[in-house]
C-alpha cells in the first residue's frame, strides 16, 4: 500500500465448491508477487497460519445457505475494510440456488436418513443480500486475470477494469464465428457478462453464462429467437437455471418458461 505496509488479506468460504479460492492459488507465476505485496492473513485453503483481524481486504466465496452463515458473514463484514465477493455463488447464489425454486424440506427428507439433524435455510442467497459488498467478481469459477486485476486495482487504489458488457464483444474481438448464427446453437453470450474470453464459443459451444447477466440484459428477446430455432419451453427453462439461476434477469426468464411449460 502507499504507506509501505502490506495489506492484510482474508479469504472466506461459504456454501461453495472452493473453485474460486483455488483460482487464487492457480495464479502460479503471480502468486509469489501477490504474497510479496499482500499479507495472506487468513486463507485456510492455503495455510494453517492465521493472523487475527481486522483485515484490509476480504475475498468471500460461496453463498449463504444456513442460519450460521447468516451470522458469520456479518462478523466478517465488521472486520473487513473492503469486501469483495468472488464467483457465482457469492454473487448470485450459485448452482445451489436451484433450491430456491423448490421445497427444501422435501429434498432433505429424501436425501437424509435423519433430516431433523439438518439445519438449513430455504434459500441460497448472494452475500450482497445480507451485508454491503464493495465489489463483485463474477464467474464460475472467476478468471485469474480478473482476480489479479482486482487485486492490483485494490493495491493502487484505482477502479478495477472489469467490463460489464456482453461475451459477444470478447467473442468478436477473438475472431470467433458466432455459434448461434452460424450453427443454430443456443448461446447465452448476448445476455452474459464478459470475463471468460468467450471460452465456450472458442471451443465451438454455446455460452452457459458462467459470468451471469450482463448490463441491461434482454433474455426475453434472446429466448424468443431460441424458440424460433426449435428450443422448447423446458429447454429454455434449463438454459437459465444454472450457476446464475437466481440472478434476477435469469430468475425472471426461467420462471416465465416454467409457467409457460405448465
Amino acid at each position: 500500500m502507499r504507506d509501505g505496509t502490506k495489506p492484510k488479506l482474508a479469504v472466506w468460504k461459504f456454501a461453495s465448491c472452493d473453485g474460486c479460492q483455488l483460482t487464487l492459488l492457480n495464479c502460479e507465476d503471480q502468486l509469489l508477487t501477490i504474497a510479496d505485496n499482500i499479507q495472506i492473513a487468513y486463507f485456510p485453503e492455503a495455510t494453517r497460519a492465521e493472523v487475527e483481524g481486522p483485515y484490509d481486504l476480504s475475498l468471500v466465496e460461496g453463498s449463504v445457505t444456513t442460519p450460521h452463515e447468516l451470522e458469520r458473514i456479518k462478523g466478517i463484514r465488521e472486520q473487513s475494510k473492503f469486501l469483495i465477493t468472488i464467483g457465482a455463488c457469492a454473487t448470485a447464489g450459485g448452482i445451489q440456488a436451484l433450491r430456491n425454486f423448490k421445497d427444501v424440506d422435501e429434498f432433505t427428507s429424501i436425501v437424509y436418513a435423519s433430516p431433523e439433524y439438518i439445519t438449513t435455510l430455504k434459500t441460497s442467497t448472494p452475500i450482497s443480500d445480507h451485508v454491503e459488498v464493495d465489489f463483485e467478481l463474477r464467474g464460475c469459477p472467476i478468471s485469474v486475470e480478473q482476480l489479479v486485476e482486482v487485486l492490483s486495482a485494490f493495491l493502487f487504489d484505482r477502479r478495477p477494469q472489469i467490463p460489464t458488457y456482453s461475451v459477444c464483444v470478447e467473442c468478436k474481438r477473438r475472431g470467433i464465428p458466432c455459434v448461434m448464427v452460424s450453427q443454430g446453437k443456443a448461446c447465452l453470450g448476448p445476455v452474459t457478462q464478459a470475463g471468460c474470453g468467450a471460452l465456450c464459443p472458442y471451443f465451438n459451444r454455446g455460452c452457459y453464462s458462467c459470468f451471469g447477466p450482463k448490463e441491461t440484459p434482454n433474455p426475453r428477446s434472446l429466448s424468443r429467437q431460441m424458440e424460433e430455432m426449435g428450443y422448447s419451453e423446458d429447454q429454455l427453462l434449463r438454459v437459465y437455471r444454472t450457476f446464475n439461476a437466481f440472478a434476477e434477469p435469469f430468475r425472471k426468464e426461467s420462471t416465465y418458461h416454467e409457467q409457460e411449460n405448465n
Binding site: 508477487t33 477494469q161 456482453s166 459477444c168 464483444v169 468478436k172 448476448p190 441491461t216 434482454n218 428477446s221
Partner: peptide
C-alpha cells in the same frame, strides 16, 4: 440485446477504447 454484435461485424464501425493495466 445491446450485445454489440452489429458494431463488431460492421466494416466501418471504428470505435476503440483505451485500457491501462498495471502489474501487482
Amino acid at each position: 440485446l445491446s450485445c454489440a454484435n452489429c458494431t463488431m461485424v460492421c466494416p466501418t464501425c471504428f470505435c476503440n477504447t483505451v485500457e491501462e493495466k498495471t502489474d501487482l
